[in-house]
Write a protein that binds this DNA or RNA. Structure first.
Lengths: 126, 126
DNA sequence: TTCGAACTTGAAGTGCACTTCAAGTCAAGC
DNA sequence: GCTTGACTTGAAGTGCACTTCAAGTTCGAA
């Protein structure tokens, strides 16, 4: 496979593939006449990368996941940390949904009014 | 209140306050001898802004929330859309937690192996 | 063999959310 | 009066995740 095909399959731009290679997320591709040629492995790798990105890993972190031999220990540590991070972010998202739903239910004419209520009635209630 | 006090109360840098003003998230502050001077309103406004940021609104979107007179209709529409967006992002975070937990539970030696499994057994199962 | 699409490179550009910097102003305490 | 520290400005810098560009090469089909 050449870069265009790989990119298309992964739903990425070719520039992104090259970028990942430059960052060390992908191993340097084999070249044929200067062009990158890929085996099936890259598909798996990209799935992993995209999963990791969607998990909230930064590209640097993801490179870390692949770097060094013993993936396991490092992976476990990072995965654990990221799971907790995701818990936080989910919690925050929920809180914010609550906030927005409150905003939807209330009949505030301005966001300020909403904000004032959300601050908790330290002023003129109702 | 001057900018330093406002910033401290909001847990922001003064540069961020000025930045918000420049973007139109905050109304231009009243000046006394060239310095910004704020009333209590700004606290509420910043709480709203920070809530919106935490809700996943971009600063541009937030400016949109404040722009134009009839906040209500616009706010309702945006809030509804954002709630759905948050649903998506929560779902994705959950999926990724599942993925990571699978990675934690599995005894893959490499991420690639995990990835291959996650792709769904199109190859040598087990 | 000639054309255009797909590729190559390194460098620069993009958008977001800010921060940092340089140079100068202002207020308060000593 | 002078210093110190908090402030002012506009411009430039930062980090992330890419994309776009310019200039050149290669492939495959007509």
């Amino acid at each position: 496979m050449r870069i265009g095909e790989v990119a298309a399959q992964a739903g990425l731009a070719t520039s992104a593939i090259r970028y990942y290679e430059r960052l060390g997320l992908l191993p340097p591709a084999r070249r044929v006449n200067g062009r990158r040629v890929y085996g099936e492995d890259v598909r798996v790798r990209l799935v992993v990368i995209q999963g990791a990105i969607a998990s909230g890993f930064t590209l640097k972190e993801i490179r870390g996941l692949f770097a060094g031999r013993p993936y396991s220990a490092r992976l476990r540590r990072l995965a654990g940390a990221k799971i907790r991070e995701l818990d936080h972010s989910i919690e925050r998202s929920r809180a914010m949904q609550g906030l927005l739903q409150k905003a939807l239910r209330c009949r505030c004419l301005t966001l300020e009014e909403c904000g004032r209520r959300m601050l908790g009635g330290h002023g003129k209630r109702a």
